[in-house]
């Protein structure tokens, strides 16, 4: 019924802000070493404002928006520390929107970001548990999408773009960092998931 078909998405706020030059980042055409040059120290940024905006950009597939959103989120998670936890509720809708595009590339990027998110700071994994209802249904749809190519080579495995594997990794990261309620809540949304800790 087209559950796996990519769906159109509206232009994101991220794109609008980027085009207007509202982000404290340098707009460059050659991004050396895949890095963003920040105009302001990340530690001094208002996470409540910027982190949801960068997450909003995860829906993007076009360059340069896609790169800056992905790398911006990565940098902010890597260097955010304690500032990340209070922003979690604001991240759920952008995450849900990104997964809902049902675009395989966007989903893969978002899954890697989710894996990074749960290890970014203490208690973040636990703070996500109440939001599994929003995030996990899409993962349930794609969980079994793991190509059986016989003895052929599935190149997505080398590029870490195999969606079935990434979902498994993400769920395991959720379980490991989500505290004691994590497993039962994952199992409720994704019945085929088996614990990576209990067994």
């Amino acid at each position: 019924a087209g559950a796996l078909e990519p769906r159109p998405y509206k232009p994101t706020d991220f794109r609008k802000f980027y085009d207007r030059g509202d982000f404290p980042i340098a707009l460059e055409h050659d991004t050396k070493g895949n890095k963003i040059a920040w105009k302001v120290e990340i530690e001094k940024l208002d996470y409540h404002h910027y982190l949801p905006l960068f997450f909003d950009g995860l829906c993007e597939t076009a360059h340069p928006y896609e790169f800056f959103a992905r790398q911006g989120v990565h940098d902010m998670l890597e260097h955010g520390g304690k500032k990340i936890l209070p922003v979690i509720p604001q991240l759920i809708i952008p995450i849900k929107n990104a997964l809902n595009t049902r675009n395989v590339k966007v989903i893969c990027t978002t899954l890697k970001i989710l894996q990074h998110l749960v290890i970014s700071s203490e208690l973040v994994g636990e703070a996500l548990v109440p939001y599994y209802r929003q995030i996990l249904p899409i993962l349930n749809i794609y969980k079994m999408k793991n190509l059986n190519s016989g003895d052929g080579i599935d190149y997505s495995q080398q590029k870490r773009e195999n969606i079935g594997d990434l979902i498994q990794e993400t769920l395991e990261a959720f379980e490991r960092h989500g505290g004691e309620d994590a497993f039962i809540n994952i199992k409720y949304m994704i019945p085929t998931y088996e614990s990576c800790i209990l067994n």
Binding site: K39, E41, D75
Partner: peptide, 16 residues
């Protein structure tokens, strides 16, 4: 972890 870029003084952040 963090350096200022030579040309324009913008910040580069590096991974763990």
């Amino acid at each position: 972890k963090k350096l200022k870029r030579r040309n324009d003084g913008l910040f580069y952040y590096y991974n763990k």
